Simulated assay, not measured.
Amino acid sequence: MTNKKKPGGWLESLKTVVYAGLIAIGIRTVAFEPFNIPSGSMIPTLLVGDYLFVSKYAYGYSKHSLPFSPDLFEGRIFGSLPARGDVAVFKFPRDNSTDYIKRIIGLPGDRVQVRQGRLYLNGQEVPRESLGLYTVEGDGPRITVRQYRESLPASPGSPARQHQILEASDDQRYDNTPEFLVPPGHVFAMGDNRDNSLDSRDMSIGVGFVPLENLVGRAEMIFFSVDGSAAWWEVWAWPFAVRWDRLLTAVR
């Protein structure tokens, strides 16, 4: 009788790690990918320290759906247009590598303009309702600004949408713009923190028009959030730094 040696435990462990890595890459590519919010351009919808899941399938797949954006193909597979009001992650058009997150305001063919802080779509003023004052914290100096509820018109296949925006005043840098005509194959994106967002309103150093190919996915849910009050080594303070009320909330 001969004894066959079983493969070493290290080989099985290596296989497990490889399989787990492939599964994780697959999920991140075709289903959901986690992102965190490092800046305040989307306050009050998203806060600095929010962690959220982005659905990769919402708009179909492009090379930017894959890790490191390999230049394997052009355009989108199973592509579909976002709806006005979607909060979307996309690759910054000027380097095609930096992740940005903004709200989709204009679709291909839309005319977008801001006049005295008011948003206009296709020549019509987008209604906004005052919600009072809002104190911005966690993104530089603590300031108080005005909060509004803005109502975007319906998109093809999607109803009208409402969301909150912030305005320090109606006479800031991007509160008076020319009228932009969104070209085919592109969208127009803006931050909800209107006076503290580098977005499609700036065609020189800002985002400009966003190619549909650059869309990574749609923000769906906040799964974790911290306010930055506890350092990584302050284990005893971690529970007090978590924004418990934001956990598992939908992004709207």
Rank of each mutant, 00 (worst) to 15 (best):
A154I: 04
S155K: 03
R149Q: 14
G140H: 10
Y134V: 02
D139K: 07
R103H: 07
V114K: 06
G140L: 07
S151R: 15
L121C: 08
Q124W: 03
A154W: 06
E129A: 08
R142Q: 11
V126P: 05
P127F: 02
V136A: 06
Y120R: 09
L119A: 08
G132K: 07
Q116D: 09
S155P: 01
L121N: 06
Q116R: 09
Y148E: 02
I105M: 11
Y100Q: 13
L121F: 04
Y148F: 12
R146A: 11
V126Y: 02
S155V: 05
L152I: 00
E150K: 01
L107E: 02
L131T: 03
L107Q: 02
R115I: 13
E129F: 15
S130K: 03
S151N: 01
G140K: 10
L119P: 09
L152M: 04
R111L: 14
I101L: 11
Q116F: 03
R146C: 02
Y148Q: 01
I143G: 02
D110R: 05
V145L: 14
P141D: 13
I105T: 14
R146N: 15
A160P: 14
V145I: 13
V136G: 06
R149H: 06
Y100D: 07
N122D: 13
Y120F: 15
S158F: 15
L152A: 01
